[in-house]
């Protein structure tokens, strides 16, 4: 059904510093679906996630992206976030001097202002923070830490999923969330993502390896190679890739 469509990417081409990375991507995602985008290094996986989130350094040269019927490419990164898009970064950025509490308070209240709501009361905000931190097994003292500064790889990724839980997006894009994670952290992160998933939402899981997809089971699997989606199938494609590699598809 057409009204089930959450995201529709058509003929998307994007460049960075005049180098074309995405060379015509088509992708449709419906409510309730989890899509995996797999591919070798340099295929354009991270570019796709950056373009969806609106990173200014990337230039879209052709094509369109519709998110819940809105023209995503006409929106700023913050407007995309308010509309329900969340990107979990492959390399979460350190922000010295800004505590997680202050960062998230600003983020949550920006979302509320963007939707015409009053800022959250301080007590309600702290309660929400505590609840969501516990959800990804982050210790409460992290609230006072500077964003990602001195965090281990696993702590950074848990912080991403904590932020995702706080902002409750409709479309979550997980860019190489498994990189740098040991198996325990991987499980915490995957459980978090699975628990946040509902039939009204969708997720794009971008990954090089099968590992994460053992925990977050995709409905649809795409292979991105040299800026194009070269193959789309069900979850059985994951095992095929693991067996044959990307070169023999």
């Amino acid at each position: 059904m057409a009204n089930d469509i959450l995201l529709k990417i058509e003929g998307l081409r994007a460049s960075v510093e005049d180098k074309e990375i995405l060379k015509g991507v088509d992708l449709t995602i419906r409510k309730g679906e989890i899509h995996a985008v797999m591919g070798p290094n340099g295929a354009g996986k991270s570019t796709l996630s950056a373009v969806l989130a609106g990173k200014p350094q990337f230039t879209v040269t052709a094509g369109s992206i519709e998110f819940l019927g809105q023209d995503l490419l006409a929106m700023s990164p913050e407007e995309r976030a308010w509309a329900g898009i969340f990107l979990s970064f492959q390399y979460p950025v350190e922000i010295p001097g800004v505590t997680i509490t202050n960062f998230m308070k600003t983020a949550v209240n920006s979302h509320r202002t963007g939707k015409g709501l009053e800022p959250l009361k301080a007590g309600d905000f702290l309660k929400l923070m505590r609840e969501k931190m516990a959800f990804v097994q982050m210790k409460p003292e992290f609230a006072k830490r500077e964003v990602n500064v001195g965090f281990s790889g696993g702590e950074k990724k848990r912080n991403e999923i904590f932020q995702m839980a706080m902002l409750d997006p409709t479309l979550a894009i997980l860019d190489e969330t498994d990189s740098g994670l040991d198996v325990d952290a991987l499980r915490i992160v995957a459980n978090g993502v699975n628990a946040l998933h509902t039939p009204e939402k969708a997720a794009i899981v971008i990954t090089h390896y099968q590992r994460l997809l053992d925990y977050i089971v995709p409905d649809v699997v795409h292979v991105l190679k040299d800026g194009k989606i070269v193959k789309t199938a069900g979850r059985e494609l994951v095992a095929e890739i693991e067996e044959k590699g990307y070169d023999n598809l």
């Binding site: 989130a53 609106g54 990173k55 200014p56 350094q57 700023s76 990164p77 913050e78 995309r80 976030a81 308010w82 969340f86 990107l87 970064f89 979460p92 950025v93 922000i95 010295p96 001097g97 800004v98 202050n102 960062f103 998230m104 600003t106 983020a107 949550v108 920006s110 979302h111 963007g114 932020q163 902002l167």
Partner: peptide
């Protein structure tokens, strides 16, 4: 700018992101 994009991707406006950066500086 990487910090700014990270904050904006969480819904923080560019203006607020700049204010946060300058205050923390």
């Amino acid at each position: 700018e990487e910090e700014q994009f990270y904050m904006r991707s969480r819904g923080i406006t560019l203006e607020d992101a700049r204010v946060l950066q300058m205050i923390s500086f």
